[in-house]
Write a protein that binds this DNA or RNA. Structure first.
Lengths: 230, 230
DNA sequence: GGGCAGGTTATGTCTAGACATAATCAAAGG
DNA sequence: CCTTTGATTATGTCTAGACATAACCTGCCC
């Protein structure tokens, strides 16, 4: 273990154990320099990592303090559905319902995707059962789609992940009732609860794609693990 | 702007613009040193920040490369409900239904909270309308609860946030139907779709609390913004 | 007392080196 | 041909300073 790593973990341990509580001052850099017998840059680097991990705050002239870890946040993994299902050991396939170019903004509604766009609808299956209904718009000005039959067998999400880099994303997650058409497609009762994930993706300010995925409530949980500074 | 910040943003710009694509090599440190006329530590610090932001990878002897940004992840903010509702400009209040100590593990089921625990049930209101039903278990071995009437007026989530630090959390998000009791409490139709967020919280390996919050599907969306390295 | 100037102090940024470490390649040896 | 060894090279860690900057304190002057 490197020295800076040792300094870091010593302080982290004192924080995690509760010995140092939020708001407490941690030793001055010069005290740590004296304690570990190293250069200030080494101590500083260790403290910098603790800042990045969200465990401490540093204030000029004042010193460094244990941060108030009270921001509830979690890293939510939203993986490629094909990989997700394969990882569960279930057979995956995708069926395409609709794939056409839309040119009028009215068709595109609130998605924020400018015309012309490619409208794709289809269903993801896991183990032969419908797993998610997907409706997607792809901005044709930004994304070069190679062939008309690209999405016959490969889900557009997988294709985009491997072909188009993105820089920003926004997710909205909510619960909805299945309703008529959706219930039929997913083989559900009309008022079954479904989890709906909407995702907007941009690349340097230009909209890339919008997708709305609807999962039967009893077949999909989003799980997020979080350790501040883990 | 500091020099290291300038180096960082120059490279970031070239990545975000697409000039440098995933897998591309970025200039060697010694080239950047020559280009900016600075010390290697300064260049190194700029690159280190890019690594932390997830934009590049560095490999010893090999060089630094633009990272493959293909991991779909989002930072999901799960704030204090009282603050959330106040920020929307709506009046917030909390009503307590149940608050009792449970000693038998059977009462605690799958929550992972060891007995003895405090079982709390109540409802969060926004603008006079029920906003979320909450059922919570607090591990009494880990959390010192001050007074029996603490949770009469303050929601346990708010109190915990301000009194008990935590180190790990796990979330599960899913869609459920309201059903009988819940529908009555939230003034919903029995088969209305609800968003259910479950959260387990630990402190250095010891369970602190488990909470299940159920929101009417039409009153709450989880929104997550994400910029890799923003 | 109120406000401003100047000193003190802790962190922020930076320099110009040093040695450590790991990956790669080429040459020597079996 | 295959393996090992050594040289090379780029990054990783570290030192011992320097000056900059921001916050706080003290004392002076009005």
């Amino acid at each position: 273990m490197t020295l800076q790593e040792r300094i870091r973990s010593d302080i982290e341990e004192r924080i995690r154990s509760g010995e140092l509580r939020p708001g407490d001052r941690i030793p001055f850099e010069h005290e740590l320099v004296a304690h570990y017998g190293c250069a200030r840059a080494t101590v500083s680097k260790a403290l910098e990592r603790l800042v990045h991990a969200g465990l401490i705050e540093r204030r000029r002239k004042v010193g460094s303090f244990v941060a108030h870890p009270q921001v509830h946040a979690a890293v939510l993994a939203v993986p490629d559905l094909a990989q997700l299902i394969a990882a569960r050991g279930e057979e995956y396939h995708w069926t395409l319902d609709t794939c056409r170019v839309v040119n009028r903004d009215a068709d595109i509604e609130v998605s924020g995707i400018p015309a012309p766009a490619l409208l794709i609808e289809g269903v993801h299956f896991a183990g032969g059962q419908p797993f998610a209904m997907e409706r997607r718009l792809i901005a044709l000005d930004t994304v070069p789609v190679p062939r008309a039959d690209t999405f016959e067998t490969e889900a557009p999400g997988s294709w985009l992940l491997h072909h188009v880099p993105w820089t920003d994303a926004r997710h909205r997650i909510r619960a909805v009732s299945a309703g008529g058409a959706l219930a039929k497609r997913l083989k559900l009762d009309a008022h079954a609860a479904c989890l709906q994930v909407e995702r907007w993706t941009w690349r340097t300010g230009r909209a890339v794609t919008f997708v709305r995925q609807t999962f039967p409530g009893d077949r999909y949980d989003l799980v997020a693990e979080f350790t501040p500074g883990g």
